[in-house]
Design a protein around this nucleic acid. Structure first.
Lengths: 334, 334
DNA sequence: TTGAAAGCGCTAACAA
DNA sequence: TTGTTAGCGCTTTCAA
């Protein structure tokens, strides 16, 4: 219960050099295994490092050498498992290459994104990773002026600043509609969360409506819930929608969380799925495939997106838009 | 599709000073709003900053002033929503106070934790946040020698290095058992994930068995699944357990993910819950409360843990163990 | 209120 | 193969 351990044990490279009886640059070379040095020098340095418990100061190292090996993630949410999945994919690759991930969360607010990007740039990251293409003018300007790599994630429908990795949400929406139409559903509704903020969900919905229009099938009704997506919101949303439009035979949800909520509503009210009502989600979360009836949905390349994004940055790949595609899971709810 | 934007636009404080016609230290004072300067100086500096698009370099700032305002999270997983929740709680507080969160993921491997802690310390963070009390000797040694604050999260059953914020997993396990016993269940089983790695789940299970022993009720059978917890694993686990011990009247799960899987198994096999089989989870995830029957479980203070951890660090609070407790949700599955 | 100057701990020429 | 030295871009005395 004391704080007496809190003594900055600032062992510096100079002290290691002193203790090892070599010059500072030799210590630096040995530690980074770069440049040339004798076996004996190496031994003495490593010995001194061990004895003194030296931990290199990357702050100083970065300042002296430019490259920060810091990658900044500015993501909308940690609650929506989509983003932790991307972080996970990127994290593994970054770590192998001795990069460090820094992050902050925008809550889907473009103004917060701008502020957070500004804060991130102060760390001179190698790259900044953002969700999608919709940013404020200020964000764009800063990013372009920064000289660091920019990766826009989970979207390819738009104009990239530099790199973009993801899939077409618009196409995903279209594919979802086409599947429902092919299965013969004609009285179709939609349950979504706040689309103004989650622009990728908005693009899916647009693609979905486009395909319906093309087939001359009207969207019967829609229920847009305020706030973020969640299972609870999906459940309440479907209940609300069915109250207004009891004759629906299929519902498209803004994502799997919402769709799972819808599925639970059906279970609770013993609405037969899909015979009486079909449900279609988006993301292909594991949990949606473990329910009594696996969810009909689209599996998105979240981990792969993070992984590729990190690889492109590490290899300093030229500007590029990478489409990782998606996969329709037929499931049992549609 | 070009990389021509990639020109390091390194506007420095010196250039701002030059452009504003003041000294470097004046620019520094104005920008940090610290020390004294005239209104006129302020104006000229801010004007120059705006004109040049200056972004302060925190790497340099940190090196010059010691305090990094970096908080390092070394967490076991991003898949288990528990840790994103903690990050979320901490993130909000840190950001308000101009701290930056850095993270890496151990996959529940103590050796990886050690390596990652070492990497983190190189950034001279203000604090390192870890899950629980079980660390390698090397990790402990580094952390103690580092002079930075250490917060151990989501556990209080053990000896803290410095700060600890969480709840008693052992108590949670006990409370879960006592609840089942009080409800009259006597043929009790357990379905868990890899306990060697998730030591907090292990402590819950220990507490659970303790309470059963105290009541003279044996644990009929247990199914321990390899790998991380997941809904799918819980579902398969319950199926397996019931095959061996069909007479069970209640099952305790290592967490809500596993319990949801169990619940889905029951739905799929139309096993009446809780009349034929009761289910008990742990964590109180939202999704578990949106199922047709809300899960009987224990709500854990995940966001609050992150929040308090950040506050303690920011206020440089003396070493302390904070018990945030937990709450039993009666639900409808037990 | 202000500026000059000395570092912060390291890397990267450059000589030796 | 090695050591010396000049920065990296800031903050922080210290005088003025």
């Amino acid at each position: 219960m004391t704080t007496d351990f809190k003594q900055q044990t600032t062992v510096t490279l100079a002290e290691v050099a002193e203790a090892a009886g070599v010059g500072e640059s030799t210590v630096s070379r040995v530690l980074r295994n770069h440049g040339s040095f004798s076996g004996k020098a190496r031994e003495r340095v490593l010995d001194a490092v061990e004895r003194l418990g030296y931990v290199p100061n990357r702050i100083a190292g970065t300042l002296a050498s430019a490259g920060s090996r810091l990658v900044a993630f500015v993501i909308p949410s940690l609650t929506n498992i989509v983003f932790p999945d991307v972080l996970r994919g990127a994290g593994a690759v970054l770590e192998e290459n001795r990069y460090q991930a820094v992050f902050s969360v925008t809550d889907y607010e473009p103004e917060r994104e701008e502020a957070l990007v500004a804060a991130m740039l102060a760390w001179r990251p190698t790259a900044v990773m953002l969700a999608g293409f919709e940013h404020t003018e200020g964000t764009l300007k800063m990013l372009r002026a920064s000289g660091c790599r920019v990766v826009e994630l989970l979207d390819i429908d738009g104009t990239a600043i530099d790199l973009a990795v993801g899939f077409s949400n618009r196409e995903a929406g279209r594919a979802s509609a086409e599947f429902l139409l092919k299965r013969g559903y004609r009285r179709i509704g939609y349950v979504g969360h706040d689309l103004g903020r989650d622009t990728r969900a908005g693009k899916r919905f647009e693609g979905f409506r486009e395909a319906l229009n093309l087939a001359g099938v009207p969207l019967v009704d829609r229920e847009i819930r305020a706030g973020a997506s969640s299972v609870g919101s999906g459940r309440a949303g479907l209940e609300q929608l069915l109250r207004r439009a009891p004759g629906l035979d299929a519902v498209y949800f803004s994502n799997d969380d919402m769709a799972l909520g819808g599925y639970f509503h059906c279970l609770a009210r013993t609405i037969p799925v899909p015979t009486r009502l079909a449900l279609f989600g988006h993301n292909g979360l594991d949990i949606g495939q473990a329910t009594p009836q696996p969810l009909t949905t689209i599996r998105t390349p979240r981990v792969a997106t993070g992984k590729l994004a990190a690889e492109l940055v590490i290899n300093d790949h030229p500007s590029h838009v990478a489409d990782l595609g998606f996969e329709l899971i037929e499931g049992a709810t549609a």
